[in-house]
Design a binder for these strands. Structure first.
Lengths: 240, 240
DNA sequence: CTTGCAGGATTGTTGAACAATCTCTAGGCT
DNA sequence: AGCCTAGAGATTGTTCAACAATCCTGCAAG
């Protein structure tokens, strides 16, 4: 068969196919149920403090209690649910201490990723930045359409893609968890516009700094960015 | 009843009791099974690549399949097991890429914790460092007794307690997971002495720097420490 | 050497059942 | 009235047995 230069291309294709397959045969029932619940929580249909009844959800989600409990476990370890023994599962209510904790981790991880990009600049193709630009433009479009929750998710995805530049599966997992918890916090804040609007512009600026390969400057910018965001959420939190 | 000065002591006692109760009250069956499996994995009885049969383990652990599967889920999210749909659960086989990934995160988190201590030095009582000293001495004692796996766990605990100084529940959780995966890596290395011996001394030195409140120096030392450890593991890994 | 096809084994999911625990209400006591 | 106690009812924790879906193995055919 054909070998040589075509081989690496073939391997790359095999990887993408493998990824697609892995995405398709998810543990179906349990993970499907978890997906639905995850959306309900992150979109606010299940507010912090709400209890999730087992028998009720078995009927709604059309899964058995055992499968539902496996879904609960999945979400528990994402921080989107908490178990209270013999009392049930609840959507956690985060407080100011959690805000500080979450943002501390975000700063550490994200700033390190950006700073670390300088070391591997040569091997990093410009195309890796494309998802970031897509997110920025998605946020701008949603803002024009006055759809602020959509702006929020686009901004979130921007940061997920930013972390993704590090090619670290564990960082990706941690970030997914952190951002999910962050969404939980957003629901106690009434005005999504003030919450998300300032960061559209900041994300674009960050993207442009990355594109210009000014990594140290980008890292400093991002650090200040996250401090600003933390202060905003804390303020909204205290005055609720 | 007695009030005043004795009250805070009583409250402290209540907290420790509450913690003990919470530890005993665990979802018993599932978490107990998970505990046994966790030990088997981290101690090497279940080597990387091993498959865990459900029916076999239900008999050994004397729990139902559903409960066992919940235990599997728990360990899956600690990174100690991986699920392959319709094929079963396996002890993951980590490779060099995982070593690099794990150590990158360790460096980021631990170095940041140490550096961050400078900001809150005044509010940090000296007693918070005691667990670290205990770990160092435990490692030294185990080394004298030629019990190198014990040295390894003591060293691990040193780093767990180090992260604990940050008072961040999420960092604690992440570190627990990272160190569990690190143990997985240790099992592919034949000589535990060479693996753990150098770090007894380094941990003591790190402790002394912290005690002297030389946080920046400690952070730099820790960074170099972790780079050294990473290189050692990578070398042992490649020559196996 | 590859392809296709049973057959057996293992996992995925379900439903029902029982035990353990919590919550809430009612009643008795000081 | 206020507080403690007991018990009923509801919910969760755990087990079991069964069936469906999928994977692995070995073998036969091309």
């Amino acid at each position: 068969m054909s070998t040589g230069g075509a081989e690496t291309e073939r391997q790359a294709w095999l990887r993408t196919v493998a990824a697609d397959v892995a995405r398709l045969d998810r543990s179906s029932s349990a993970e499907r149920a978890a997906d639905i619940l995850r959306r309900s929580i992150t979109e606010g249909a299940l507010p912090p403090g709400a209890q999730l009844s087992e028998i009720e959800l078995t009927e709604v989600l059309e899964v058995s209690r055992n499968t539902l409990r496996e879904a609960f476990r999945l979400l528990t370890h994402e921080g989107l649910l908490v178990y209270k023994l013999h009392r049930g599962v609840f959507v956690p209510e985060l407080d100011e201490h959690d805000v500080i904790d979450l943002y501390r981790l975000r700063r550490v991880l994200e700033v390190d990723v950006v700073r670390g990009l300088a070391d591997r600049d040569p091997e990093l193709p410009a195309s890796r930045l494309e998802p970031l630009l897509d997110d920025v433009e998605a946020a701008e479009a949603a803002a024009r359409a006055d759809r602020w929750p959509v702006v929020g998710t686009a901004n979130m995805r921007f940061h997920e893609h930013l972390i993704g530049l590090a090619d670290s599966s564990r960082m990706d997992a941690m970030t997914g968890r952190l951002l999910a918890e962050l969404r939980l916090l957003f629901h106690v804040i009434a005005t999504p516009r003030e919450l998300h609007e300032p960061y559209i512009e900041r994300n674009r600026r960050l993207f442009e700094l990355l594109e210009a390969r000014k990594y140290d400057e980008a890292a400093a910018d991002l650090n200040e960015y996250l401090l600003h965001s933390e202060r905003a959420i804390l303020a909204a939190f205290r005055s609720r």
